Amino acid sequence: MDHKDIGVTEASLTPNRRTVMLGALALAALPRRAGAADVAHIQRLSPAFDRMVVPDARISVVASGIRWAEGPLWVDDGRYLLFTDPPANIIRRWQTGCVVTPFLSPSGTAGTDPKLVREPGANGLALDHQGRLLIANSGGRSIDRFDLVTRRREVLVDRYRGKRFNSPNDLHVACDGTIYFTDPPYGLTDGDASPLKEMPVNGVYRWTPGGAVDLIDGTLTRPNGVALSADETRLYVSVSDDVAPRIMVYDLDKTGLPRRSRVLLDAKPMRVGGAPGLPDGMKVAHDGTLVCSVPGGMMFLSPDAEPLGLISNGGPIANCAFGERGRALFLTANDRVLRVPLRAGWQDRGRPA
Rank of each mutant, 00 (worst) to 15 (best):
T150P: 09
R159Y: 08
L134G: 04
V204H: 00
T101G: 09
H41S: 15
D50V: 10
S64K: 12
S167Y: 06
D241T: 11
R161G: 11
V155D: 09
P31W: 00
V173K: 05
L235F: 00
D348T: 07
E324D: 10
T150D: 08
M21H: 11
T96W: 15
A321S: 07
I179G: 02
R164L: 15
T255G: 10
W94I: 09
T189M: 10
G274P: 10
V100K: 06
V155P: 08
R51F: 14
N169F: 07
A34V: 13
L235I: 03
R118S: 09
D158F: 08
Y160A: 05
S142N: 12
L235E: 04
V117R: 03
T150M: 07
L342C: 05
M299G: 07
V340C: 03
L257C: 10
A344G: 12
N123K: 06
K4C: 11
S12I: 05
R159K: 15
P307C: 08
A244V: 14
R246G: 03
A48M: 10
D176V: 01
L171G: 01
R118M: 09
L278W: 12
T182N: 06
I135E: 00
R51C: 11
V53K: 06
L215V: 12
D214H: 15
V204Q: 02
D251I: 07
G218T: 07
R51D: 14
P106L: 02
T233N: 15
G274K: 11
R336D: 05
P276S: 00
K283T: 11
V149I: 14
V54A: 12
I66G: 00
F300L: 12
D56A: 11
G140H: 05
L73G: 00
Y160N: 08
A244Y: 14
L308C: 09
P303S: 00
R93D: 00
P15R: 03
I66N: 03
T109K: 14
I311M: 12
Q43E: 13
S12N: 01
A29D: 08
D128P: 04
R18H: 08
C98M: 15
E324V: 13
F330N: 04
G111S: 06
A63E: 08
T219L: 10
N166K: 04
K254N: 14
F165V: 07
L278H: 15
V340D: 04
G7W: 01
A110R: 08
P316V: 11
D176N: 06
D183K: 01
L156I: 02
R44W: 13
A318I: 04
A126Q: 10
Q130K: 11
P31H: 01
T96E: 13
F83Q: 06
D190M: 12
G65N: 08
R271A: 13
C98L: 14
D304M: 13
T150I: 06
M1A: 13
P15V: 08
P245I: 00
P316W: 09
L13S: 05
G350P: 02
S138K: 06
Q43C: 02
R79H: 13
S64M: 12
S238F: 04
A126F: 10
I143E: 01
D192P: 12
L329G: 10
A34D: 14
K115R: 15
G277A: 02
H286S: 15
Q43M: 12
L342R: 05
G139V: 00
R262P: 09
P200T: 03
F300D: 06
R153K: 11
V291Y: 07
S46Y: 03
H3D: 12
E10M: 15
